[in-house]
C-alpha cells in the first residue's frame, strides 16, 4: 500500500478531502479536546497550586494505593496469561473455544457488576460476611477487595496478546528443545520467552494502564475511605464531587500522563516490533 499507481481503486480527490476533514475533526473534538481539558483545568490557577494539590496526604496515599494494587495484580495476571497461552496455543484439547471465551468474559461484563459480585460474597451481608467478621478479616472496603476487583477487569489483557502470537509461532522450536533434552521451564525461558517478550510487554503495558485506571469495579468495593481505600481514580471522583476542581484535575493529569506514556510506548512497540507482537496489531 506504499505507492499507489493503480488508479482504478482510488477515490476521487473530493471524497478523500471530505473523509480526511471529517476524520480529523471527529478525532480532535471527541478525543483530543477532553485530553487537553484535563491539563488545562489542572493548570487553570497555575502550576504551583496544581502541584500543591498533589502533595496533600490524601492524594499521596491514593497514589501509593494505586501503585500497590498494580504491583500485586500485574504479576498475577501475567503469570495467568502465560499459563493460559501455553495451554491454549501449544496444545489441542476439547473446550478450547469455550475457555477462550471465558477468559474474554470480563471485557463484556460491566465493571460495576464485577464489583457487585464480590460484595455479594465478601460483603457484610454477603455469603462469607459473618465468617469473615468472626475471623476479623476485611476484604470489602479494604485492600484485598480492591485487588480482587482489579484482577477481575484485567484478567484477559496478557492472555489475549499471547494466545494468537504463540499460535502463530507454532511448537516446532519448543519440540526441538525438548527432544534435545531441555526441561519444561528451561524450554520456556530459553526458547519461548525470547520469542514472545515484546508481545508480553505489550500485554502487560495495557494491563497496567487498566489496573491503575480502573474505576467502576473499584468504586463498588473501595468504600471511599479517604486516605485509606481511595485509589487515584476514586480520589479524583471524591475531589470532583467536593468542587475541588484543581485537585481533581491535578490528580487526573497524572493518570492522563500515564495514559499518554502507555500510548507512546504502545505505538513504539507496534512500529518497532510489528512482527513480534500479535498479528492483529500489524498495520
Amino acid at each position: 500500500m506504499t505507492t499507489r499507481t493503480r488508479r482504478a481503486a482510488e477515490d476521487p480527490v473530493a471524497m478523500r478531502l471530505i473523509c480526511i476533514a471529517i476524520t480529523a475533526a471527529f478525532i480532535i473534538v471527541l478525543l483530543l479536546l477532553p485530553l487537553i481539558t484535563v491539563f488545562a483545568q489542572a493548570l487553570a490557577k497555575g502550576l504551583g497550586l496544581a502541584l500543591s494539590r498533589i502533595e496533600t496526604h490524601d492524594a499521596w496515599t491514593s497514589i501509593r494505593l494505586t501503585l500497590i494494587v498494580a504491583a500485586i495484580s500485574l504479576p498475577l495476571n501475567t503469570l495467568f496469561g502465560i499459563c493460559a497461552a501455553w495451554a491454549i496455543a501449544k496444545h489441542t484439547f476439547r473446550g478450547k473455544v469455550l475457555l477462550t471465551s471465558l477468559i474474554d468474559l470480563p471485557f463484556s461484563v460491566s465493571p460495576v457488576v464485577a464489583g457487585l459480585a464480590y460484595v455479594l460474597i465478601f460483603g457484610m451481608q454477603g455469603w462469607l460476611g459473618p465468617a469473615l467478621r468472626l475471623w476479623n478479616i476485611k476484604i470489602i472496603f479494604a485492600l484485598p477487595g480492591i485487588v480482587l476487583a482489579t484482577l477481575f477487569v484485567t484478567v484477559p489483557f496478557v492472555a489475549r496478546e499471547l494466545v494468537p502470537l504463540m499460535i502463530d509461532q507454532g511448537r516446532d522450536e519448543e519440540e526441538a528443545a525438548v527432544s534435545l533434552g531441555a526441561g519444561g521451564l528451561q524450554t520456556f525461558f530459553r526458547v519461548t520467552l525470547p520469542n514472545i517478550k515484546w508481545g508480553l510487554l505489550y500485554g502487560v503495558l495495557l494491563c497496567n494502564a487498566r489496573a491503575m485506571g480502573e474505576f467502576g469495579a473499584v468504586t463498588v468495593v473501595s468504600g471511599h475511605i479517604r486516605g485509606l481505600t481511595n485509589t487515584m481514580p476514586v480520589q479524583v471522583e471524591a475531589l470532583y464531587n467536593d468542587y475541588e476542581f484543581v485537585g481533581a484535575f491535578a490528580l487526573a493529569s497524572l493518570l492522563a500522563l500515564l495514559a499518554l506514556f502507555t500510548l507512546a510506548l504502545k505505538s513504539l512497540l507496534e512500529w518497532r516490533y510489528a512482527g513480534e507482537i500479535a498479528a492483529t496489531h500489524r498495520h
Binding site: V38, M212, G213, E214, F215, P233, E237, A248, A252, L255
Partner: peptide, 10 residues
C-alpha cells in the same frame, strides 16, 4: 488508555 473517571470529569 485513559482512566474512565478522568474521561468523565474531562
Amino acid at each position: 488508555a485513559l482512566p474512565t473517571a478522568v474521561a468523565g470529569i474531562a
